[in-house]
Design a protein around this nucleic acid. Sequence first.
DNA 1: TTAAATGCAAATTATTTGCAGAAGC
DNA 2: GCTTCTGCAAATAATTTGCATTTAA
Lengths: 163, 163
Amino acid sequence: MILWYVEWMEPAVRERIYEFIQARGLRRTSQRDAIIEAAFSHADHYTAEELLVRARAVEPSVSRATVYRTLPLLVESGLLKELDLGKDQMLYDPNYIDHPRHSHLICLDCSRIVEFEDRNIDTLENCITKRLGFSPAKKLTRIDASCDELRRSGFCAHKPVSV
Amino acid sequence: MILWYVEWMEPAVRERIYEFIQARGLRRTSQRDAIIEAAFSHADHYTAEELLVRARAVEPSVSRATVYRTLPLLVESGLLKELDLGKDQMLYDPNYIDHPRHSHLICLDCSRIVEFEDRNIDTLENCITKRLGFSPAKKLTRIDASCDELRRSGFCAHKPVSV
DNA sequence: TTAAATGCAAATTATTTGCAGAAGC
DNA sequence: GCTTCTGCAAATAATTTGCATTTAA
């Protein structure tokens, strides 16, 4: 089976990000272009280090410092989300454009990250926040869980055979 | 107005923690005693560094390394919870004994941490996790929010006057 | 007695930053 | 031309770890 990943940036995303850059009076550089290209050409999560590698594949002159300086800008634009899943490195998630409210489940058995969305939880959280006298700005829901399939049958398609 | 904080450990907590220590074949040392005393004598959250200061008030020989080595043990015991609120330091929360399922709201205006508990969210999260084929092990809900009172009246009792 | 626990100081490691040169506008 | 942006290398800072010594059981 071959899985197809998005290997190019959606035009709408490109438009929005360069709109943001222009609105903020930021300059367009080959390094930024490469980082942006790398940041929004895959649907998976990545670390700053992984983004550096991907950006260098587009433009070899990209440095680690520039990646670290560009990431907060992308996060501020609202198109990329910083994801703290409790590891020592931050993860970045480019999937908030299509699913702005999704949450994450992390499998304790195979470390797989499953994204999910639930309107009810979202609404409940907003209600509680209001009741406490606040207005929600940013919400994080993260569930660490064990795989039922693995427990039942001793096998899970996503579990590495030996690690 | 004077606020009273708990300045001693509840006997039930002391019993449970030493039960854990014994069950795990861990040794009882004056440093561990001091760290435990410091860890469960306040209702507020604290960093490793703050715990070190508090533990040294009980037993001056406590070292930073021992604090860092003891904290994971207390977390494993289930009586203390590690709290990642997105700062560069971890926070530790001793309030999970009375409220095992509580979540956190962080005020973006005054940095106050408000603890809340909601059965409905809890249940919904469990349902979704099950539907996805998992069993929940650890859940984290964190809401960053702005203060309505402050926006409405320009004043909030918890907002520092000038910072 | 013997394995576990400790303090110290050095190591680790993701991220940040100062600075001098390069490049966008 | 002026300011922003960049790469490099050094700094930062929370946490971890190696090791010699101490201590609980």
